[in-house]
Amino acid sequence: MSGLKIDDAKIKEAIETISKYGGEAVVKCVQCGACSGICPGVRVGFNVLCRMLIKRILTGQLEETLEEVSTWGCQACNRCTEVCPQGVRPMEVVFAFRRYQASELALSTSAFGPQMSLYNVGHAVTISPEAVAENRKKAGLPETPPTALNNEQAQKEIQTLLDNSPMAELGIF
């Protein structure tokens, strides 16, 4: 991190952006590192999560971190939230950062499939209808589950909610 210049305007912008996306407790962080010590993502090399991500935000390095992939490896497990002595809720800061990244379309193309699928059939995780039917037959269940999967009205409701959200402007479904 050689040559990092502390720029008050950039710090303010970073904190405001992350707060706007739901990570407003980020300012309470004292960089103790309890979160990173217990983070399964940090352990396997998603280094810019928890303490390190928060440090980037609190030093105003928002754009410099825009393309970071660690945030997309967060398990959302919330061990960090449980141990944080400051009430930062680091996982919510990570997700606020994801929302910032998503608003700039700085995300892997592999993230698009689930959004499309959620929009089309109401489920992010899907397999072919034939495989669903076959699995369900094995378990002695009706081939169609009582979910949104084959429910046009439910799908319309989900599409309405998504069409009227900022997600609609990203062109991901």
Binding site: Y21, A76, R99, G122, A124, P146, T147, A148, P166
Partner: peptide, 17 residues
């Protein structure tokens, strides 16, 4: 009836609160 994806962490929670 008609319940959707929760929605999963990688979908709406990562895009818009």
């Amino acid at each position: 009836e008609g319940a959707s994806c929760c929605p999963a962490w990688g979908t709406a929670p990562s895009f818009d609160l």
